[in-house]
Amino acid sequence: MNNSSFMDLLVENTPPLMVMARKFTRTKEDAEDLLQETLCKALAYQDNFKSTTNIGAWLYVIMRNIFINNYRRRKKTLELTVAQTKALQKEPLANTSYHPDISTKNILAQIQKLPCLLKKPFVLHLEGYKYTEIAWMLDLPVGTIKSRIHFAKQALKSVIKRS
């Protein structure tokens, strides 16, 4: 299928997709964002689309998966924030070694000092993206992404231990 006929199909299916996006998100702005992300992903995976496939169903599955992944990412971020808040509210234990010079700013500064090869996948991982999503975004194998994130964690641990 050529690019212009695929684009025509996308434009033709935009109104029903917008209806579904509104049902998922319940706000106009979020629905527009979800629709845009769906159309971008559809364009990125245009080669996987077969002309015998129902494009409406294909686009719906893409939208649903994006919505679910975004929901999981927000939930994970919220859980981390709640856990961090609870940890900050607790008094440090007497046996716990406490390093007052290790702060969030210090850790963020150390992340920024990481080599670009390690920093990009690590930051995306911190933002809640899955290894496969990061691999797709950076156009690298999943194993390479896992290794780079591991090496970034090791580098940060060694800096924190030296502090």
Rank of each mutant, 00 (worst) to 15 (best):
S4V: 03
S5G: 07
S5C: 07
F6A: 01
F6K: 07
F6Q: 03
F6H: 06
F6G: 00
T14L: 09
P15K: 07
L17K: 00
M18E: 04
M18F: 13
A21N: 00
R22W: 02
K23I: 11
K28V: 07
K28W: 03
D30Q: 02
A31N: 02
D33T: 10
L34F: 07
L34K: 02
L35E: 10
L35K: 06
Q36G: 08
T38G: 08
L39R: 02
L39C: 06
K41A: 12
L43D: 12
L43C: 12
A44G: 13
Q46R: 15
Q46K: 14
Q46G: 03
N48K: 15
F49A: 11
T52F: 03
N54Q: 13
G56H: 06
G56L: 10
G56R: 11
G56K: 12
W58E: 01
W58M: 01
Y60N: 03
Y60R: 06
I62F: 08
I62Y: 02
I62T: 02
I66G: 13
I68Y: 04
I68E: 07
N69L: 05
R72E: 12
R73A: 04
R74W: 14
K75R: 15
K75I: 05
T77M: 13
L78F: 10
L78R: 15
E79F: 07
E79G: 08
L80Q: 12
T81I: 12
T81W: 14
V82N: 14
V82M: 12
A83V: 02
A83S: 12
Q84N: 07
A87H: 13
A87R: 15
L88D: 10
E91N: 00
P92F: 14
P92H: 08
P92R: 06
N95Y: 12
N95F: 15
N95G: 14
N95I: 15
T96D: 07
H99K: 13
P100N: 13
D101Y: 05
I102H: 05
T104V: 11
K105T: 12
I107W: 02
Q112V: 01
L114D: 01
L114F: 05
P115W: 10
P115C: 05
L117C: 09
K119A: 00
P121M: 07
P121K: 09
P121F: 07
P121D: 04
P121A: 08
L124K: 07
E127M: 03
E127H: 06
T132I: 08
W136V: 10
W136S: 13
M137R: 02
M137P: 14
L138D: 04
L140N: 05
L140W: 00
P141N: 10
V142R: 13
V142E: 11
G143C: 06
T144N: 01
I145K: 05
I145F: 10
I145H: 02
I145E: 02
S147H: 06
S147W: 08
R148W: 00
I149E: 01
F151P: 01
L156V: 00
L156D: 04
K157F: 08
V159H: 06
I160R: 10
S163N: 15
